[in-house]
Design a protein around this nucleic acid. Structure first.
Length: 534
RNA sequence: GGGCCUGUAGCUCAGUCAGGUAGAGCGUCGGACUUUUAAUCCGAUGGUCGCGGGUUCGAACCCCGUCAGGCCCGCCA
């Protein structure tokens, strides 16, 4: 059974109504690691609905978290906001990346909005539509009030849980509420007393004040904030990264605190990180990222979904934007063409194979942008489209080629969309070299030395034939094999010779249209210098 | 120091929860076809299941140990 269906089944033992939660702090550029968080939750939510459960899928935006430091992508003026809540400060401005006061004052456009908005657009395209819960607004609206009161009233018990479970020692003046100071920062504030609903404090500037816990004049520390959310929202299941899931991590303390607050802890679903192939873990601070938006320019949303659906959550994913993407995309095409039901009904199938077929079927189901839709194969592989996109400058020429080879009858929206991404991919640094079509400008001696004597003479005939050939795809296409036939050799010799001389390969893509797009003299020059090597 | 996850074919991974003849896809090789979609079709190839013990009639799977990689016990998806 697919991992999402297994998790959904296990959820069903808890009841029929569920709140499946995910949450991210929009402290910087989003990357595909964040996509795993939300897609893991989304797929679980879909699987649970398919299993007949009533599901509310939510995405908590942790806009109440403080800005930790002036990240490399921020201007120096952000220094003043360290410790301030990211939902309450201006966004970086285009150009110098300093605070954009104008938009902040005019439209209330915040730092959190700035990073969240493009992510939400990407989510819509991927077919993820969670209910959004803004954490900062929730604090301000008093949603946390009841849980905060319980936490403050049980401060010592909570301290005991955190110290015991995480085996870290809390400061003697630790208190389960972080008040905002006289400058609206959460940093360096000491709690001096508590009389509901006020927490009294003294800040790093020596100013004293009081924070009303029912009005969001501060926030709960993360390890309490999380279980408090579970409680007031009624979360029954949450997907989170392995960092939270480790022993002594925030889930371990959270589940005990949750029980203390009178709420059954949610069923956990921990997932592994996504790294970039050959570049290590994704990290916003080192700039080693691929954003969901950028990923979507390269690949269709279904394929991005398949990346997550195909890997069990506890498996690390090494995201490969080169050949791995081709393999993944072609895998998607293959899945689309399979008849899973007849495979499942095959009596000769082993139990093991059955599991694989069922998982593949479920992965495809969960990869659909619209739940419940049926995948349609495009009958044009990624590889093939990559070829066409490199050899033909106009889209129309590509559709013509596909129509004349009767691969398609007309370009669909899906294909047009895919071609646009393909063109972007080819232009990008991610496009794999082995897929790139390169016509040599100097002879590849090694490739030429592999030709037999027939093929070597075919090369000479071919060169002569092309010299007299009209320079269009059709003429070239007939000239290549004809040059060999005229001399009692198989067309194969001519092709092998051409590939060795022009690309340094044994086989290759259809040559004629590529050559037709190139300069005739340059091609002849290259062929001549290859002939002279003998 | 304490704990969690991962290790299965050249690659990506199923299979471990409920022990019962080692499975897919990709790749590779061979064949067919070919005025070639690095295409398609057919066939083959491929593994001391990290390692060592134990339990069992029987272990990739359960138990103990060990090695390697990643992670957590401030913050991070």
């Amino acid at each position: 059974m697919h991992w999402a269906d297994v998790a959904a089944k296990s959820l069903s033992h808890r009841g029929n109504t569920h709140v499946i939660s995910t949450g991210i702090t929009p402290s910087g550029e989003f990357h595909i690691g964040h996509l795993r968080e939300i897609l893991t939750g989304d797929m679980l939510a879909r699987a649970a609905r398919d299993a007949g459960l009533d599901v509310d899928f939510i995405f908590i935006v942790d806009s109440a978290d403080p800005l930790r430091k002036v990240y490399s992508f921020l201007g120096p003026e952000f220094e003043q906001f360290i410790g301030h809540q990211i939902g309450a400060i201006p966004a970086p401005r285009e150009g110098d990346n300093n605070p954009d006061w104008q938009r902040f004052n005019d439209d209330g456009w915040t730092y959190a909005d700035h990073f969240l908005t493009p992510f939400m657009e990407a989510l819509a395209e991927i077919g993820v539509r969670p209910r959004i819960i803004d954490n900062l607004s929730s604090y301000r609206d008093g949603k946390f009030a009841e849980m905060t009161k319980m936490a403050c009233d049980s401060a010592e018990q909570i301290r005991e849980i955190i110290e015991r479970v995480s085996s870290r020692e809390l400061a003697s003046d630790w208190f389960p509420w972080s008040p905002l100071d006289s400058k609206q920062s959460l940093d360096g504030v000491k709690v001096t007393g508590y009389e509901y609903p006020l927490v009294h404090w003294i800040d790093s500037h020596g100013v004293e004040g009081s924070s009303d816990i029912t009005k969001g004049e501060g926030k709960l520390p993360w390890r309490i904030d999380w279980p408090a959310k579970w409680s007031w929202i009624g979360v029954t299941c949450e997907a989170f990264g392995k960092d939270h899931g480790a022993a002594g991590g925030s889930y371990a303390t959270g589940r005990e605190i949750s029980t203390l607050l009178g709420h059954q802890p949610p069923q956990p679903l921990t997932y592994e990180w996504i790294s970039l192939r050959g570049k290590g873990a994704m990290s916003s601070s080192t700039g080693n990222t691929i954003g969901p938006i950028e990923a979507l320019r390269l690949v269709p949303p279904q394929i991005l979904r398949l990346l997550i659906a195909n890997s069990k959550p506890n498996k690390a994913i090494d995201f490969d934007t080169g050949m791995g993407l081709v393999t993944l995309a072609d895998e998607f095409e293959r899945l689309c063409t399979r008849d899973f039901d007849s495979e499942i009904n095959d009596e000769n199938i082993s139990r093991r194979q059955l599991v694989q077929v069922e998982d593949a079927k479920a992965a495809l189901r969960l990869s659909m942008v619209e739940p419940g839709t049926i995948a349609k194969a495009t009958s044009v592989s990624f590889r093939h489209l990559a070829l066409l996109a490199q050899t033909k400058s106009s889209d129309d020429a590509i559709w013509q080629s596909l129509i004349s080879s009767s691969a398609i009858t007309e370009p669909t929206k899906q294909l047009e969309d895919r071609l646009a991404r393909m063109r972007y991919w080819i232009e990008s640094e991610h496009f794999p070299e082995e897929m790139r079509i390169q016509i040599l400008s100097s002879p590849d001696e090694k490739a030429l030395s592999l030709l037999d004597s027939d093929e070597k003479s075919a090369l000479k005939e071919l060169t002569a034939a092309l010299r007299n050939c009209q320079w269009d795809a059709e003429s070239i296409a007939s000239a290549i094999p004809q040059s060999a036939k005229d001399n009692d050799m198989s067309p194969r010799s001519a092709y092998r010779a051409a590939y060795a001389a022009l690309m340094g390969l044994e086989r290759g893509p259809r040559l004629a249209p590529i050559l037709a797009e190139m300069d005739k003299n340059a091609i002849l020059k290259q062929l001549d210098s290859c002939c002279q090597l003998d």
